Computed example of a mutant assay.
Amino acid sequence: MRLLHAFAVLVLGTGTAAANVPCGGDFGAFTRAMEDEAIARGADPQVAARFFDGVRQDPETLEADRRQGVFQLPFVEFSRRLISQNRIERGRQMADRYDQVFDRIESEYGVSRGILLAFWAFETDYGAVQGDFNTVNSLMTLAHDCRRPDLFRPQVFAAIDLYAAGDIDPDTTTGAWAGEIGMVQMLPEDIRDNGVDGDGDGHVRLKESAPDALMSGAAMLRDLGWRPGEPWLQEVDLPQDFDWVQTGIDVERPVAQWASMGVTARTGSLGAGDLPASIVLPQGRNGPAFIAYPNFDVLFEWNESFVYVTTAAYFATRLEGAPVYDAGNPSDGLDDAQMKELQRKLQARGYDVGGVDGILGAGTRNAVQRVQAEMGLPADAWPTEELLNRL
């Protein structure tokens, strides 16, 4: 099992309208109904029959879908687990090996090599561990499951298109539990819509071809709104009397205004003065501090976990020469039981935390920051035992 594919939570494409086939019930009947719908959507009946022949429900996929505990780790611990000297050195080796591919990507798509190297590293350890879940079985299992069926059904129909093009095989293609395929773990719909034949062999095969995978990832980021030539994340120093309620990805100000408030780059200089940006404190005012530019927001379309995206964005800067962040001295976070208790208490006060799951997601961060401000505490969105006790 690769380092991240068991708990990657990607934002799934929803370009195709929701399927008419109801979720749940007998899996065999569901499979036959999906085959009929695929044909109704234009799939060749023989292709559809071969695609669905032998598909089976995968209980291990469902287990993986329910297992998201790693996102409960705070940023410093999470990033230290994922970023090693070996990964940095391997990243630089890959940058050299595929220098011409990255040059082409930066010229045609404006996506920095650091970003693609970071996702390549975290998703599959530079292609070494791409996942051993049968892709079609996983997609069909999640489409049949009633938790998020409309997110996965479009991926099944996109996978049929890839099969018809000769780019995947329903019997042998494997990947992550959520159906992502290849070195940078893209979903079938993204591969179909943004896949690039980077090595010129007439196919888009993200499992075997690094040029295909890297160029397809870049094309997807551009499609999601990547702004060529602009930064994404940068470590900053903040004054001691900073207004902490101004932090968080929901608060945007021009870089020049942040500079006037005392925000300085730890190394180099801040981005262009008119660029909109946010101040991000992954572990509160006593931990690392970053300024996040518009391209940082785009990365949430690849993965919706705040700690994952922040770590990947930071690692990309490391690969391009940034120093190790100043970890500071953040207070301890809450454990799973405490975080869930906090979320229940916030819900009881009328805050929308996005569900009691023990994960410090965007909804919980926003609620924490608001209640901190109400209580006269430093509103840095980092939950502590003190806050829990006060509630």
Rank of each mutant, 00 (worst) to 15 (best):
S107P: 07
M34P: 05
D190R: 07
R113Y: 07
D99C: 02
D96L: 13
R390L: 15
A6M: 10
L4R: 07
L214R: 06
M261I: 01
I83S: 12
G287Q: 01
Y314H: 11
L388R: 10
S260W: 04
G350D: 08
Q257V: 14
T364K: 04
A316D: 03
M339Q: 14
R349N: 08
M186Q: 14
F51R: 08
F75P: 02
R222A: 09
T311M: 08
E301I: 00
D199F: 13
V280E: 06
K340R: 15
G24P: 13
A95N: 11
R113W: 10
I249L: 06
N295Q: 08
R56L: 02
R80P: 01
G248V: 01
G24Q: 02
V184G: 05
D250W: 07
A373D: 15
R253T: 01
T311R: 10
A316K: 13
V129R: 13
Y351R: 12
L319C: 10
Q347N: 13
G287L: 07
R344I: 04
I83M: 05
G54H: 13
T310F: 08
L142P: 02
T310C: 12
V371K: 09
A316N: 01
R153V: 12
V129D: 07
N303D: 12
V111S: 14
P59C: 14
L116V: 01
V368A: 09
A19R: 15
G15C: 06
L12C: 05
L388Q: 11
L162Y: 14
F300K: 09
G287P: 00
P323T: 03
D336H: 10
F7S: 09
A17K: 09
G229R: 02
E304P: 00
Q257E: 14
V368R: 12
A64E: 10
L388K: 07
E77I: 01
R32F: 11
R205A: 08
T135Q: 13
Q347A: 13
L224Q: 11
P59L: 12
P330F: 04
L388C: 14
T174N: 07
G202E: 01
V11L: 15
G350C: 09
A95S: 12
P282C: 08
P59R: 11
V356E: 09
Q100S: 14
F119E: 04
R370N: 07
D297N: 11
L346K: 15
L238Y: 05
V70L: 05
A272P: 03
R147Q: 14
A373C: 06
A322M: 03
